[in-house]
Amino acid sequence: MYHSFEVDGVDHTLWLSASRHGYRLHLRDEVIAPVAFTERSDSSGILTIAGQSEPVRFVIDGELIHLHIRGRTRTLRYIDPLGAYAAGNDGTCPLVARAPMPGRVVAITVSPGDSVSAGTALMMIESMKLETIIRSPQDGIVERIHVKENESFEHDAVLVTLSKEGF
């Protein structure tokens, strides 16, 4: 079972193996060896990859690994297989509309119990200067609205829970 890191919504599988000369990194279509990481302080280190050394600044925040390498910043999320597979494939998981970005609720256009179809506007949110309409991802019944008008929410927050019709 390979390890997996998510970067900007894309999963990257990899495996690390040890050898006499440090670690080998197995990516989907290449093997890079040797790779090594020397920690210099709590937040800086040197990555040696295929004979080249790169200074790296990093912060590990739970499953998130924030990295700054060669002038570029990325955040990678380690996907713990126990959690990831447990959540997936669960047929009883309710349908939800999530916040595509952090923001604030401007107006809610549905009420619990309303029957909606895919694409029905559920609410209008406002983030910085943009108004966005949150639409229903599927046909269903509005079960619960998790936010109030004017309330702020974070990215990925559950805004509306739907249930399947006749379920």
Binding site: M1, L82, Y85, A86, A87, G88, N89, D90
Partner: peptide, 14 residues
């Protein structure tokens, strides 16, 4: 209790 085969395999590896 595993929700899927891969979940079960992840538990077994653990």
């Amino acid at each position: 209790f595993a929700t899927s085969e891969l979940h079960a395999i992840a538990i077994a590896r653990n």
